[in-house]
């Protein structure tokens, strides 16, 4: 079983894990993800490979605690083990090279952009990462991201650090030529609402925009079709055809709706878990 080599709390609800998984580390490419299960009877949940080190045989994941499974994961300490870990899954990000590549990250998305941005920088692109959070305590991995990109633009909703406002507002300013300047392409990873908003900002300017879709998944191997999303009117499976798609073609309304299919059950799972932890 993959062992947790190190664990770091990076915000009150976000943790970074370095995990020994030599086979996955050896094959991983930027943009891919893993599926983990943390207990018998547990759900299989997808998590982006934020970083990997083939030599050390490790992969890094950054996990935001939102429900039952991510909570259980938060209980696993250094030296602990993850029950199952399958990967690397999905197609690597195929981001065209040259010019100015701008990443937009919200939530765990900024972490997920680490190796994508580092690769773009290494091949000679000018790179800017716009990372956003409600307030400065929720910003993640700023130092690592500064090393991976030419520029980092910080945005907070409350103005506690950097630009006061949403990442999309700052992106709009870049498109107008401010700061590091107009993007040649945009890669957005974060909550679906954010990715959709980014796609709407870039659409009028025809700036190619890549988004990383995170629908509910089960197997992650193309077997169940539960992760299907509509892209340009066609059905695609996010786990094998994606997770990266053309943001201007994705049917976000459908994807957001499907993401909420199990809200009732997810709440129940958390309630059961609390009862379990509280009682006995």
């Amino acid at each position: 079983m993959p062992k947790v080599i190190s664990k770091q709390q990076i915000t009150p609800v976000t943790r970074k894990y370095v995990i020994a998984a030599p086979l996955i580390a050896h094959s991983a490419k930027p943009g891919q993800f893993v599926i983990v299960r943390v207990r018998e009877g547990g759900e299989r949940i997808p998590l982006t490979i934020a970083d990997y080190d083939a030599k050390a045989g490790t992969v890094t994941i950054v996990v935001q605690e939102v429900g039952a499974t991510t909570h259980m994961l938060s209980q696993i300490e250094e030296g602990g083990e993850i029950l199952d870990m399958l990967g690397p899954l999905g197609e690597p990000a195929h981001i065209p090279a040259g010019g100015h590549t701008v990443g937009v990250g919200g939530g765990y998305g900024a972490a997920a952009l680490t190796c994508i941005m580092r690769e773009a920088t290494a091949r000679g692109d000018k790179t800017t990462l716009i990372m956003g959070a409600r307030t400065k305590d929720l910003l993640i991995l700023e130092d690592e991201l500064r090393r991976a990109c030419t520029n980092v633009e910080v945005c907070t909703d409350d103005g506690s650090k950097g630009f006061k406002g949403f990442v999309t507002e700052r992106l709009g300013q870049l498109i107008e030529g401010q700061g590091p300047g107009r993007p040649d392409r945009v890669v957005a990873i974060g909550p679906m609402g954010m990715m959709q908003a980014v796609a709407e900002v870039t659409r009028p300017f025809d700036i190619p925009t890549f988004v990383s879709m995170d629908p509910v998944m089960v197997d992650g191997t193309g077997m169940c079709g539960g992760c299907r999303i509509t892209v340009g009117g066609e059905q695609r499976f996010a786990c094998v055809d994606g997770p990266m798609f053309d943001g201007h073609q994705v049917d976000f309304a459908e994807a957001v709706r499907r993401r909420k299919m199990y809200v009732k059950e997810e709440k129940l799972a958390v309630t059961c878990q609390r009862a379990h932890e509280g009682g006995e």
Partner: peptide, 23 residues
């Protein structure tokens, strides 16, 4: 799809939800 429906029920044991986590 039949695969998803049956996988949730058989492999993930959704019939025991909420004792297991997959509905």
């Amino acid at each position: 799809s039949a695969n998803e429906f049956l996988t949730r029920i058989n492999l993930m044991q959704a019939s025991s939800f909420p004792h297991v986590d997959t509905p």
